[in-house]
Nucleic acid binder design. Structure first.
Lengths: 346, 346
DNA sequence: ACGCGTTACTGACGCGCGTTACTCGCGTGG
DNA sequence: CCACGCGAGTAACGCGCGTCAGTAACGCGT
């Protein structure tokens, strides 16, 4: 059987000091002077015993767990198709580590499952809720009780700090690019059902760009996607059955890949017959045929920013009510000037 | 200021019983009879106070943290290009939840960073190490000390339970498919440098299939990929500069997408001029042009299996030394019989 | 009336650590 | 000579809970 793990009492005994002194030395407590001689004895004892403070006990004594809860409210399909999620996670974990915190993961089977106990049981000091839904009563209650929460995504009507991509601006960027190429009949396939805030924001950006250019909106040009490539395939068929666009903005690269497959089947060539812009800038987008013009978003930074926000919130530091991270247009071969159109000056 | 959180002592006071009784009732302790009357008083008091047991204190008292540590040793590029990672994570989290455990995430900046303290500090009861490297001294030490560890991936030479995809069998499946179509000059692009066990295993599968069919191996037909599409693009150029294959097995869909882009640029048409098989069955593979024949692997199950394994290990139940999850061939349009070849009977 | 088992509880300790208030010895200025 | 301050360190409590050993009351058979 493995020997019992050494405790601070063992270290104290070996160094011939009290447990208190051990604690002072190991925590480098400010304002307490410890002679070098004593300090060294303690440090040596700790090293030879292989002492590692029990962090559970430390959490209890301090009253803080030094860990962040990450709640993934996305549906399984959403997770499976979100190629950037891992990057965001990495950003969050790194932000947490910088502040000597840990990340506790909580996934939810939709329709069931509660996560509030995560914080109510003192296991985490704060929560990051990713992909919140409107009907999340649990979340509302938690916020009302004053627990530190940061939302990654958007949830209007709740007074909570949130961090998100600037979806509207990104969509505008995409559509403005198409407009600048001379396109006017610009279709739009959303990245998800409009109940998802990101989807409706991107659609809003699309509309704003059209309105700003004085182009009338046409309902026949709009269709809903749903996370995966298949939905893009279906949506493009819907649109082509109704009308004939000369450009297509798909608010998700993954959905766009399905849409491009649909266009191929319809005998349309990209970008000769129709220009396509995606959204998300997944790594693969550059290697599609043709390489996809898209909107890049800082997935890693999103995680880092969310992490810093909740850490600030926990520490009582001021936190911006809403942080929007900038997007960027990446022009590739899937977009070209409208056939016969003169390219506008930029 | 928010009121102090209620403790079990508060519940005890309100129910006019001792803290011990509260503990017995709330934990439904077997072997202890509590009259319904008393039980109800305790339950009611807990409910009206909004009592939630402090899990940190509970961890300390019980000596177990009921949480699993997940260590991601993959490099950032690897994470960014691993579209299945999120699925695996979801599987693990769900397996953990079923057993009332939590998942603690630990990422590592390569070259630095230790994670052993995660378990040495008592924060987790066991560790799942994903993507271990040969030179992981920390891991070796941990295993030697008898800490519960399960490896997700492969690490030969260390006596630790591990869970992985059956990479060899999957690669064989892919190559056998190409052989059955009549191809003989089958090239191979690995999914990663060969220092990664998954990469060398898949290459081994490729070789075994060739050997079993009596086809001589040709070094000129083999090139190394490195996680991303770009590396596939480069690797295919290397191969085409040396020789002319009639089929190509790329041990990763993501790399295959880059490879297919390279084939296009070289003026080769898939599958007319060359058949291509990928590996991983990322959701997008079905929507490529042409849809990619690939090997599907149970990403979600991988997470579940790893989770169950470490839970078994923690509980002292017997654990299989090595679990290999089966793969499956998904035939799509990127593979076709060799030009002029008679299709073999299956 | 007495022993004895059973029911229904409770007192007190321990988990490992942080932290406050306190002690003790030793100059030192008055 | 004494009060005082200061450096060096410590005893003891608290964090919130699980749990063992124990106790008081009660019924029941003889």
């Amino acid at each position: 059987m493995p020997k019992r793990r050494p405790t601070s009492a063992d270290v104290a005994a070996m160094a011939h000091v009290s447990r208190t002194t051990v604690s002072f030395v190991l925590n480098e407590r400010a304002g307490v002077k410890i002679p070098d001689d004593t300090r060294r004895r303690v440090l040596d004892a700790a090293a030879t015993l292989g002492y590692h403070p029990n962090s559970v006990a430390r959490q209890l004594a301090r009253g803080a767990s030094r860990s962040l809860g990450l709640v993934l409210r996305q549906s399984p399909e959403q997770v499976a198709n979100d190629g950037l999620l891992a990057e965001t996670l990495r950003g969050l974990a790194n932000a947490a580590r910088e502040a000597d915190h840990r990340v506790l993961l909580e996934t939810l089977v939709p329709g069931e499952g509660s996560y509030a106990n995560l914080v109510r049981s003192g296991r985490t000091d704060g929560l990051i809720v990713s992909g919140p839904r409107y009907d999340d009563e649990e979340l509302v209650q938690l916020v009302r009780d004053g627990f530190p929460v940061v939302i990654q995504g958007t949830l209007p009507g709740l007074d909570v700090p949130s961090v998100d991509i600037d979806n509207e601006a990104g969509a505008r960027l995409a559509v403005e690019h198409l407009l600048a190429l001379g396109h006017r009949r610009i279709a739009c396939i959303t990245n998800a059902p409009l109940a998802y805030t990101a989807a409706s924001e991107r659609l809003t950006g699309y509309r704003e760009a059209l309105a700003a250019a004085g182009v009338a909106e046409e309902p026949a040009l709009i269709a809903e996607g749903a996370f995966d490539a298949q939905s893009g395939h279906r949506a493009v068929a819907e649109i082509l059955a109704r009308t004939t666009p000369d450009a297509l903005f798909v608010a998700s690269d993954v959905v766009a890949i399905g849409a491009m497959a649909g266009l191929r089947e319809a005998g349309l060539s990209v970008p000769r017959d129709i220009s396509v812009v995606g959204f998300d800038a997944i790594p693969l987008a550059a290697y599609l045929d043709p390489p996809l013009t898209t909107i890049s978003l800082p997935a890693y930074d999103l995680g880092v920013t969310a992490g810093r926000a909740i850490l600030d919130r926990i520490a009582g530091r001021p936190v911006a009510g809403r942080t929007l991270l900038p997007t960027e247009l990446i022009v590739r071969a899937s977009t070209a000037p409208r056939h016969g159109a003169v390219r506008w000056p930029v």
